[in-house]
């Protein structure tokens, strides 16, 4: 099977984020990066799919040329080769332009199945997977928590607010991965050594202009100063009084 894991380099979840001077971009100084949490699940599912069905796993990313450290980590965890679509302006790329660049590459690669995280933890759009599938005319199942693949079709379970949907789909397909689908493995020394020799090809991303323009980025407004009402169960009546008569939510 020709398997692709799409991963994105994002600021770490622990990062304290600041807006740069000018107010329309993030201050990159002091930011450290990681592969987006859900993309780790996508990589793991890609590797498991190879282990079950054979084939090759290509790690595909759209991002900066300097993002190779995170890609090597993906190769250490079982990716066979990597493609970096270089985009020096990756932090401000919109979901449509990203989707078009990834769709073009997935088509070139002739993928049977591509895994992505259900959402990237920087922009929180949850848009690129279904957008790519729509541009390619492929099937797409989002928020997947379990998956079975056959030669030209598959069955996935998707988590919604109200329960679980079972979905049958044809290949090629995009699967967006939700927590519960698998437990990502850690890399070991052997994998890390092997990853150094695996091919990592960089090419310029085929980019269209952004449609989304940033007018302003602002820190969230600070919450009004709160107060400690007391200690232990004795403070409960004070809390009830405050929720009722001050906050008026009871």
């Amino acid at each position: 099977m020709n398997i692709v894991a799409c991963v994105k380099r994002v600021p770490t979840t622990e990062a304290v984020v600041k807006v740069a001077d000018g107010g329309t971009s993030l201050d990159e100084s002091g930011l450290s990066y990681m592969i987006s949490f859900y993309d780790e699940l996508a990589l793991e599912e890609a590797v498991r799919t190879k282990e079950a069905h054979g084939g090759e796993v290509t790690v595909l990313t759209l991002g900066p040329s300097e993002g190779t450290k995170e890609i090597r980590e993906c190769l250490a965890k079982g990716g066979d080769r990597a493609e970096l679509l270089a985009d020096s302006n990756w932090l401000s790329r919109d979901c449509r332009a990203s989707a078009k660049a990834l769709a073009a590459k997935l088509s070139d690669l002739g993928a049977d199945v591509a895994f992505m995280g259900r959402v990237a933890t920087d922009r929180d759009n949850a848009a690129v997977g279904p957008m790519v599938a729509t541009y390619l005319g492929w099937a797409c199942v989002t928020d997947v928590v379990s998956l079975e693949l056959a030669e030209d079709k598959g069955t996935a379970r998707r988590e919604t607010e109200t329960g679980i949907e079972t979905i049958e789909f044809s290949l090629p397909a995009i699967i967006t991965c939700n927590k519960g689908l698998n437990e990502p493995r850690y890399s070991n020394l052997k994998g890390i050594m092997a990853a150094k020799k695996k091919p990592l090809e960089e090419s310029p991303a085929e980019l269209v202009d952004n449609q989304a323009n940033v007018i302003a980025l602002t820190p969230p407004s600070p919450r009004p100063e709160g107060r400690i009402l007391g200690t232990g169960p004795d403070a409960v009546p004070v809390l009830i009084e405050a929720l009722r008569n001050e906050a008026k939510v009871l």
């Binding site: 919109d94 449509r96 929180d124 759009n125 279904p130 919604t160 449609q211």
Partner: peptide, 23 residues
């Protein structure tokens, strides 16, 4: 921006070749 909305809207946006603002 429910399960259904977040699943459908990106597909609709791509059909229209438009960007999507989620959530």
């Amino acid at each position: 921006a429910s399960s259904a909305g977040r699943d459908l809207a990106p597909r609709v946006a791509a059909h229209l070749d438009a960007v999507l603002f989620s959530d």
